[in-house]
């Protein structure tokens, strides 16, 4: 664990990632590894999966992974399989698509536990 604190990783479309980079989460380490992935039109599911795995299991300095919901849907099996507390994976809405609580992997568990519609 870094004494300065841990990083926030972002996987998302260009606008979302740029926004968070603007806020200052971006980081390039000594080995030129990025803590974000811009998913464009030509990004394959494998690339997303690799980045997600890197952020969630390989890299020790990532504590929070932000992933837009549309992209999370593309690697849903990985997101759902991630059960460890740290890093915590947060699904965020992107620009074009409104936030859909029903497909959020954590919220669906929450709702399952609370019963009913979870509000």
């Amino acid at each position: 664990m870094n004494e300065d604190g841990d990083l926030v990783a972002v996987i998302g479309d260009e606008d979302t990632v740029t926004g968070f980079l603007l806020a200052g989460v971006g980081h390039v380490d000594e080995r030129q590894r990025l803590n974000y992935l811009v998913v464009g039109e030509r990004t394959t599911d494998d690339e997303i999966a690799d980045a997600f795995k890197a952020f969630t299991s390989t890299r020790e300095d990532v504590a929070v992974v932000l992933i837009t919901q549309v992209i999370a849907d593309r690697i849903r099996h990985l997101v759902d399989a991630h059960s460890r507390a740290i890093p915590s994976v947060l699904e965020i809405p992107d620009k074009e698509n409104p936030y859909r609580p029903e497909s959020d992997s954590v919220l669906s568990r929450v709702r399952h536990l609370l019963g009913g519609d979870g509000t």
Binding site: G5, V8, G24, Y36, I86
Partner: peptide
């Protein structure tokens, strides 16, 4: 412009 992270989280 990405260099060092300005925002980090501390647990």
């Amino acid at each position: 412009g990405v260099e060092r992270a300005k925002v980090r989280v501390r647990a």
